[in-house]
């Protein structure tokens, strides 16, 4: 959209567009409104034809179903389904991603700073990172059983290499003079790594972890779909067996909301802990 000859900056189009506060809101909300509106129209049409159609349930049906799943204990297990699924899934997700972040930081940092370490691990990590984790999922289940370990391992494998490689790149990009200076001031080698370089890498770690969360969710759901007794992904796949879209759609929205909140938290954490980062 090239606006030739326009003297003042356009409100909507062009590289220098400056939408006002109101227009900003409108632009932000527009795609959401369109998506919801399209759904509502399609759902209404379908339900008019067959009031019990399962594919696109009405907002009211979804609300009632979710109310039941959130506030009434399950007949067989006595758990509150939504709460239980959420805690179980979050535990898996956070354990996996936390392990991946710590491992990724240590591996990436040391690969970036110690040439010996780098020679030994860089080709290996690069090689492993190419393996599609989902393709070896059945193997994970066979090795680690159908319990928690296999699911957490999948999330770990799915995120650790991306984090490692990103931390490695960030470490390599650090000016080497810093280390020279630190060493000449009498800091030990490990001190230079963990007290000079690492604190500068930590915000990058949080950001990378934040971006890896999407993949981590994918692996969580995939693992729960294959063999599970509880969890958000388990529920979605179980409901699929009888096409209960009135529960699946709100579950997907719920997963999205949790994911968004995690993203937001990490973003705020970075700007709160490391106000200098990215400036």
């Amino acid at each position: 959209m090239f606006c030739a000859g326009a003297m003042r900056t356009h409100k909507l189009l062009g590289l220098h567009a400056e939408p006002g506060p109101l227009l900003n809101w409108v632009l932000t909300l527009l795609p959401f409104v369109l998506l919801v509106a399209t759904y509502l129209v399609a759902s209404h049409k379908m339900l008019e034809e067959n009031p019990r159609a399962k594919l696109l349930p009405s907002v009211q049906t979804m609300g009632e179903t979710m109310k039941r799943l959130a506030t009434e204990p399950d007949k067989r297990t006595g758990h509150y389904t939504l709460l239980h699924d959420t805690t179980v899934s979050l535990k898996r997700l956070l354990t996996g991603i936390l392990l991946a972040a710590v491992t990724g930081l240590l591996l990436g940092l040391n690969m970036g700073l110690f040439p010996g370490f780098r020679t030994m691990f860089l080709p290996f990590v690069t090689f492993l990172s190419i393996i599609p984790p989902l393709a070896i999922l059945p193997m994970l289940f066979i090795v680690f059983g159908v319990d928690e370990v296999a699911k957490i391992t999948l999330i770990f494998i799915g995120s650790v290499f991306v984090i490692t490689r990103d931390i490695y790149l960030a470490t390599m990009a650090m000016p080497k003079e810093q280390i020279t200076k630190a060493l000449s001031m009498g800091v030990s080698q490990l001190g230079a790594v963990y007290r000079v370089i690492m604190p500068q890498i930590l915000p990058r770690l949080l950001n990378t972890t934040r971006l890896t969360l999407g993949a981590a969710w994918l692996f969580l759901i995939a693992a729960e779909a294959i063999a599970s007794t509880e969890g958000l992904g388990y529920r979605v796949y179980l409901m699929r067996r009888y096409m209960a879209m009135d529960a699946i759609i709100p579950y997907v929205c719920w997963i999205t909301l949790i994911g968004y909140c995690m993203d937001l938290t990490l973003r705020k954490l970075v700007s709160w802990l490391y106000p200098w980062y990215g400036k």
Binding site: R76, P138, F141, I142, V146, A227, T229, Y237, L238
Partner: peptide
């Protein structure tokens, strides 16, 4: 009754290999 055991929802694509091993 089902309370006497734990049902693990397992994909039919993987159940054979999981049981075998």
């Amino acid at each position: 009754s089902e309370r006497d055991l734990t049902v693990v929802n397992t994909s039919d694509a993987d159940i054979g290999a999981l049981f075998a091993t």
